[in-house]
């Protein structure tokens, strides 16, 4: 079983700025088994209530706004990263049962579980001699 359930992933074309925040593509891991598809995205600094996971027309989109850093009045001495909005879309090869999709956030990592419906799983066809 080696069907690629997730094909492309890309940032939205209008991605440069959203409400003046830079938009970043989160790094992602994608796993698949006969039971389902798992997607993990690195989204450090994003609170659960700032997270949005949507599925429409076989496209799964995740987005989340990072929390601010520190308190007012601090001056940046060295800046290696910016904060803004994480956003990424994953094209799925077919629809998943939306009600069964699970998403959870832990330590800045979003994990989405897309269980495959029973009828969509590959079936072994016995070959008769």
């Amino acid at each position: 079983m080696n069907t690629n359930e997730t094909m492309m992933s890309s940032a939205p074309s209008s991605a440069v700025k959203e409400n003046d925040h830079p938009v970043f593509l989160p790094a992602a891991d994608i796993y698949e088994s006969p039971a389902g598809v798992w997607i993990r995205c690195d989204m450090p600094g994003v609170a659960e209530e700032e997270l949005e996971v949507t599925m429409e027309n076989k496209v799964l989109t995740v987005s989340g706004t990072q929390m601010g850093q520190g308190r007012e009045g601090l001056e940046t001495l060295a800046g290696e990263y910016l904060t803004g909005v994480y956003q990424r879309s994953f094209g799925l090869s077919r629809d998943f049962d939306e009600s069964a999709v699970k998403a959870r956030m832990k330590d800045g990592v979003l994990e989405i579980e897309l269980p495959k419906a029973k009828e969509a799983r590959a079936r072994r066809i016995p070959v008769e001699a």
Partner: peptide
Amino acid sequence: MICHRKER
């Protein structure tokens, strides 16, 4: 389990 993408 198979891995399609490993970016993290």
